[in-house]
Amino acid sequence: MDSSFAEAVGQPPAAPAPLRSEPARRAVLLGGAGVLLGAAGCAGGGSAGPTAAAPTGSSSTAAPSTASPAAGSPSAAATGGAPAGLPAVTPWVPGPGEVDPDVKLRAVQLVEALGNWPAGGQGVAAAGARAAALGLNPGLAAQAGPLLPAADRAVLQVVYAQYGGLLADSASVMVVCRQWTAGADGTVAEGGTTVDVRLGRAQPRWTVTELHPADPGAPSATLSAAARAVLTDTRILLPPAALADVTSGAVHDSVLRAMLTLAQAYTFQVTVLRSGHPLDVFGTDRPSDHPQGRGVDVWQIDGHTVADPATDHALVDGFMRAAAAAGSYNVGGPRQLSGGVTADQFFSDDTHHDHVHAGFTD
């Protein structure tokens, strides 16, 4: 996420583990992106069914969270149980080192409540009741979009919640999730999305004010060589919305080539590329790199969460410097680094405590 003032300087005008579609599905994407993108990259899409691997929680490994369900969550599916025929999911909980963890948890609990339901729980009205059970505006269900596909039952696994912006009285939390749905006939489909959840300070807890789900572009019939290489690189782990961004052809090759360069030395999990990110640098009217297809955020490197204080600083700092060497003009992360080509090439703030941001020019 590029919320720092430094990022605007020099900017051109305006659940299964690992978190990615399986290599076989990516291979099919390369052969016919127009046919399969809805199944592999869009929320509520229609792949043949869930994978056997366990969903990912907030820890720095691929294992699901084993923490107790968060208090107040009305969704049975988000507490480890699952409707028949759907994979078991676990509630996401903030890991070590998170800044203002309850802000993230508030956003996540709403997404989990909206995206999980048993038979009879489908539809906007039922989703609104689940939001109300959390003490939130039931009208938010009308903004849930791809979290509420037409399905008899659904389970949703939050993979990570990353800040899109954190100010004194407002915040953006980008909630990355995967979702499985079942029709009345038992047919299971796999999808997922990223939701930009907006919050405002309130008592006793922050409140959710808006939802902005990802809206990836349509799949492209022709992809660049860099896009095709990213789709087949097993060291680049893409969530559904980011996968859809790549297959749409809307991510600039400068970003894709840098990701491929980084993958020569690291395995990393992407949070967001283009869709599901605030349009502007949070709290400003300056366009963000991400909606222009010129940014990438990474929340996990070589299996270690960026926010976790136990993660070796040298690992994250080395990744940041490698991103700069790969062409990023603006690299943000949990620590302020020195030695950039320009005075503001590196930056740090609370928003970037949980990820590495790399922005690129055309």
Rank of each mutant, 00 (worst) to 15 (best):
G191N: 04
D215K: 12
V251E: 06
G249V: 12
T207W: 02
R130E: 10
C177E: 15
G121H: 09
T232D: 08
Q157N: 15
A189F: 02
L211G: 08
T194C: 10
A126C: 05
T232G: 02
L238D: 13
G115Y: 05
A168I: 05
V246W: 02
G145E: 15
Y160Q: 11
A244K: 07
A214V: 09
A125M: 02
G249W: 11
A189V: 00
T209A: 12
E112M: 04
T247P: 01
G145R: 11
D152K: 11
V173Q: 02
A229P: 01
G128F: 08
V175C: 00
A154E: 05
A244F: 05
L134N: 05
A214S: 13
L148F: 05
V124A: 04
W206F: 03
D185H: 02
T232I: 04
A229Q: 09
G135F: 07
T234Y: 00
V173N: 04
A127K: 02
D169H: 07
T207H: 09
V159A: 15
V195E: 00
A184W: 05
L136E: 15
P240K: 13
S170T: 14
G200Y: 00
A218S: 14
A168H: 07
P138Y: 05
W206R: 03
G186N: 14
L114K: 02
T207R: 15
V188Q: 08
S248P: 03
V197A: 04
S170L: 01
A113T: 09
A218P: 11
G249A: 14
G128Y: 08
L136A: 14
R205H: 08
A133I: 10
R205K: 03
R235N: 15
N137W: 01
A168M: 07
S170Y: 00
A227H: 14
H212F: 13
L114H: 09
A225R: 13
Q162P: 02
G145S: 13
P146E: 10
L231A: 11
L134Y: 03
L167N: 09
A226K: 07
A214F: 04
A129C: 03
V230P: 01
V155Y: 05
A182N: 06
T187A: 14
L199N: 10
C177K: 01
Q157L: 05
V159E: 15
R201L: 09
P138D: 10
G200M: 03
A184R: 14
G164C: 08
L243V: 10
R228K: 15
L156F: 09
D245T: 03
L134I: 11
P146Q: 09
P239V: 11
T234W: 00
V159D: 15
P118D: 11
V197D: 04
A113V: 08
R130C: 03
Q179W: 05
T181N: 06
V246R: 03
T222L: 11
H252A: 14
A133F: 06
S254K: 11
S170A: 15
T247S: 15
T194P: 00
R178V: 12
A154R: 03
A113F: 02
M174N: 06
V176Y: 01
T232N: 01
P146M: 05
R198I: 01
P219M: 08
V155C: 04
